[in-house]
């Protein structure tokens, strides 16, 4: 299901809610698609001091409205940037610890926040070979993560077929034990809810629901049991100002169709 009203589409809702998850002054490593758009939206709304990093090697760009890049490697990603570096250098900023938030989309996620963008089915004999990790594995291995993706049962599975980008691996201390001693999944922003993770078990938990969404609906669209507390806050619906800014950035609906 998607919460779509006459006022906004599901992907517009996802974009606005994702933008709100960023705070002014943060250094945000943004992937292509909704993250790129939402980070740019945040810059134009409540967080003008957000510094965006793109994996193509850009530090601090301001993407031009209506000229959204199809990947994070084009010259469109470099507009009004402070510095251009190599791919390796920009990724090493994650490892060095300069980044507050890694911000990515996802094809498939599980109860521990592991992301799969490599194989549907087994890696040996997949039903679909997906495009792969790109910078996803590095970003999720090395920093605190926010993921933006639509909440559907087929995308929210108990255990992903393949851990491309690690969340809390198998829960508990398994992430730390594997050698990933920094970072971890922080939030999953969907068109239904804001999801977080339990500190001890590493399992997904509902932090807030979007207007008009019930806890049951969030659960129905998830392929595993969510941790749902008895009282859950409701998010504010997208404002006219947020939607206008978003539509100004993506007039051709490249990422918000």
């Amino acid at each position: 299901m998607t919460i779509e009203t006459k006022d906004f589409t599901a992907s517009e809702l996802l974009c606005v809610m994702s933008a709100r998850a960023l705070e002014d002054g943060q250094v945000v490593f943004a992937g292509v698609g909704i993250p790129l758009l939402a980070a740019t939206l945040a810059q134009r709304l409540h967080a003008p001091g957000v510094t965006i990093l793109f994996e193509g090697g850009t530090i601090g760009p301001h993407v031009v409205p209506g000229q959204l890049p199809p990947t994070t490697n084009e010259q469109r990603c470099t507009r009004k940037a402070n510095m251009l570096v190599s791919i390796t250098e920009v990724l090493l900023l994650l490892q060095r610890g300069y980044v507050d938030v890694g911000f990515m989309g996802g094809a498939q996620i599980d109860q521990y926040g592991n992301l799969n963008s490599s194989f549907i089915g087994s890696a040996d004999d997949p039903s679909v070979r997906l495009p792969g990790t790109g910078g996803g594995n590095d970003i999720s291995s090395l920093t605190r993560m926010i993921v933006a993706m639509p909440q559907e049962k087929r995308r929210f599975v108990e255990n992903v077929d393949f851990i491309t980008s690690p969340g809390y691996i198998r829960g508990g201390t398994s992430r730390r034990d594997s050698g990933l001693i920094a970072g971890g999944m922080y939030r999953v922003v969907t068109d239904l809810a804001i999801l977080g993770f339990d500190d001890d078990t590493g399992r997904m938990r509902v932090e807030a629901l979007h207007p008009g969404v019930t806890p049951e609906q969030a659960q129905e669209n998830t392929g595993f049991e969510l941790i749902i507390d008895s009282s859950i806050p409701t998010t504010e619906p997208p404002t006219a100002e947020e939607l206008a800014a978003l539509r100004h950035l993506d007039p051709d609906k490249v990422y918000t169709a």
Binding site: L94, Q95, S118, A123, T133, N137, D138, S141, L142, F162, I163, T164, S165, P166, I169, S174, R175, S178, G179, L180, A182
Partner: peptide
């Protein structure tokens, strides 16, 4: 030496 990929199936294969 590097600090990512550990614990993932990308490294596993």
């Amino acid at each position: 030496p590097m600090r990512s990929m550990m614990g993932s199936d990308v490294a596993g294969q």
